[in-house]
Amino acid sequence: ASRLEDAGYYVQRVGYSSLHQKPDEILQDISLQINQCCQNHTQNVNFVGHSLGGLMVRAYLQNNKVDKLGRVVLLGTPNKGSKAADHFSNSWLMDILGPTAKALGTDDKSFPKSLKPPYYPVGIIAGELKSKLNDTVIPGKDDGLVSVEATKIDGMTDFIIIETGHSMMRYDSEVADQTIEFIKNGVFKEK
């Protein structure tokens, strides 16, 4: 957020609690915040969402019209669901994380699968950690929590993989630079 502000953008941080709430409850909460922020904007409104936040951006835009909608960047968002959520679905960990974490799996009834393809320009940034430690849980390239393949979505405008982990991508300078590039130009910079 601070790097976007340094690039001249007004940034409104949208907060929510993912523990003990269902996806529709979180969506209701963030919708109020976004509507309050964006109803009188005269410039384009761009969205950047990390992980579950990216799914919430998609859900919001599926249910709400934004008059001055600009571009959307999704960071490590499990657009096709999470194999980790599948793997741990019956564990005590998911009981602690709550109903939204349980809804992030890859089955047809999952929250990610309920979302329609984007009608807006969307850039996807996937993280990749060079580790084989979790290959039994998340096969293939991944950021430690979400597979690179699961971040992809039909209708995406551009896609890039950056060497970073799931949580740390929010603070990664290359992720920030590529986010700004997509918001400005509608494509990522070639590496």
Rank of each mutant, 00 (worst) to 15 (best):
D86G: 06
K68G: 03
D158C: 05
I124L: 14
K83S: 14
Y120L: 01
Y171G: 09
K152E: 14
H166I: 02
K141Q: 00
S91V: 09
M94T: 13
M169S: 07
S131F: 09
G123L: 04
S91D: 12
K152N: 10
S82K: 01
G140W: 12
K80H: 15
T179H: 09
K141T: 00
K109H: 14
E149W: 02
Y60Q: 02
A150S: 08
L129R: 04
G144H: 03
V122W: 08
K113G: 01
I124P: 12
S147D: 13
T77G: 14
M56Y: 06
N134V: 12
T179Q: 05
L133G: 04
Q62Y: 06
K132V: 07
A101S: 15
G98D: 11
L97C: 02
L133H: 09
G81P: 04
L97I: 02
A176L: 10
L93G: 14
M94S: 13
G140I: 04
V122T: 15
S91Q: 02
F182I: 01
P117A: 11
P121Q: 11
G123R: 02
K68H: 15
L97P: 01
S89I: 05
M156S: 12
S173M: 08
R58F: 06
L104Q: 11
R170Y: 00
M169K: 06
L74F: 04
D135V: 00
K68A: 01
F111P: 01
E174L: 15
I96C: 09
S173Q: 11
I161Y: 01
V146Q: 07
L115N: 04
P139V: 05
T157S: 13
G144V: 07
F182H: 09
D135W: 08
Y60E: 03
K113T: 00
T100K: 09
